[in-house]
Write a protein that binds this DNA or RNA. Structure first.
Lengths: 256, 256
DNA sequence: CGAATAGTGTCTCTCAGACAATATTGC
DNA sequence: GCAATATTGTCTGAGAGACACTATTCG
């Protein structure tokens, strides 16, 4: 997360600067609005999915879009994204990984006025039915594969594509796949995340060796073992470990 | 680069939406200004350096900051960054690699008003003395190592730190080190880039094997060989190849 | 026992790190 | 020849991909 702390002015203003500031007119700058929009990704039943809302207000009323909205005048960008996430989808911030994706600000991307969207990327485990908030008619999970190009309001197709590609890349060199599963999980569940996000099957044996052999990636949970879904030997349980990167990386199949 | 194309509204507005739009009042949204600021990095004489300007206007007049400025009302974010780059530093866009770094928008980061900065990261070869533009007193290269925390105006210390870390990471898994050297270069020059950016010496033999053995990373130039700086066998010349990623990655020394 | 899933072991190939040895140039 | 740099080659250990095999559970 970027820029969480509040006061950023680290120099006391000298007298001439302070007097200049008093005479300053903000209207001389081009007027922009800033939104914080959220690419909330999860894996549900083995399907890599994104949370979309049906817009209840203009513009693009009735169309699907990413959840999000205007940043308040005295609000941090990160805070705005988390607020939108919680209010508009019912997802709690501490249950997910949140990072900034980037800014999207082509002129004309919003018919109302010049709007720069600061997009956030969120990884969450499969959550109960999310709740639509004010201004949205409904919220739904949509398989990422089913969102084909001209599907979303504004330039959100482009934002989503950037988020999906970033997610796929991050699984390679970070332990963030654990953000898609619950507090405790099995190696098979974690493998399912990789397979869903990458759209490639992975060898269960080699995957097991890799994730259990990487120091600080997984921490075994003392508790013995859970149930088996359709039979089979029960799997061991793990928690996320303290590792912050994966070195060497987990290699994504099907690339040079 | 993100969002280069212009018209982004891809739905014709229905009648009710158009009439609503006509009655729309932009003043109802919190007023923001948006700047495009540039982290321009290079390697000069083996020193990883950033281009800083001395501010000629308020706020932070006289202080060092990243080059940048306000985005125009009808201007793309990328275009604004490139414009700032060219006008404020004299660097031509096609001689460099440009990518978006992220948005920085903590309230209070600019004493004038609420300003969101969209930062861009630029890699350029060592360039002639850059030219200061309007509003800046001077432009200078500063070694990245010498910029210690409370040194720059606004929150530019934070922006610079993000850019430097991104640059260090990108050398690992992308062929972008070639953006720091000229059109044609030797393996030793390229190695010098890695060593300067990472601050670690690399084994010349292993480095040579890695970069020449990675397909499409380097293309040998027909021309035989150049001069030797202080004697020694003349080195072969290469151009950047068509590769867009480095797999497996070039591993940065000194990390788990 | 058979089916199904979890986990271990083995083999091979690629590749990074260490470093010897050779090649080519200026002085 | 000597110094300096470029380039090739060799050895070793870590680790990925392929896959046989063992372990544990349910019915």
């Amino acid at each position: 997360m970027t820029s969480t702390r509040r006061p950023q002015v680290r120099r006391v203003l000298p007298d001439d600067e302070a007097s200049w500031l008093a005479a300053y007119d903000p209207a001389q700058f081009p007027p922009f609005a800033v939104t914080a929009d959220v690419v909330l990704l999860t894996v549900r039943d083995g399907v890599f999915s994104v949370l979309l809302v049906e817009r209840g207000t203009h513009p693009f009323r009735g169309a699907l879009s990413l959840p999000g909205g205007f940043v308040h005048a005295d609000e941090d960008l990160d805070s705005a994204a988390v607020r939108k996430l919680e209010r508009e989808t019912g997802v709690r911030r501490d249950a997910a990984h949140v990072e900034q994706l980037g800014a999207f600000g082509a002129p004309g991307r919003d018919p109302r006025m010049r709007v720069v969207c600061v997009a956030y990327l969120v990884f969450a485990p499969d959550l109960e039915a999310p709740q639509p908030g004010k201004g949205t008619r409904s919220v739904r999970w949509v398989a990422v594969e089913q969102v084909d190009a001209p599907a979303l309001a504004f330039d959100h197709d482009e934002v989503l594509a950037a988020g999906v590609e970033r997610a796929r890349a991050k699984l390679e060199y970070s332990p963030l796949a654990t953000a898609f599963v619950g507090e405790v999980f099995t190696v098979a569940e974690l493998r399912g995340v990789y397979e869903a996000v990458w759209g490639h099957p992975l060898d269960p044996r080699n995957f097991h060796r890799k994730v259990t052999g990487t120091p600080d990636f997984l921490v075994p949970v003392g508790r013995p073992a859970p149930v088996g879904p359709e039979g089979g030997r029960p799997a061991a349980l793990f928690r996320r470990g303290p590792a912050t990167s994966l070195r060497p990386a987990m290699l994504r199949p099907g690339r040079a």
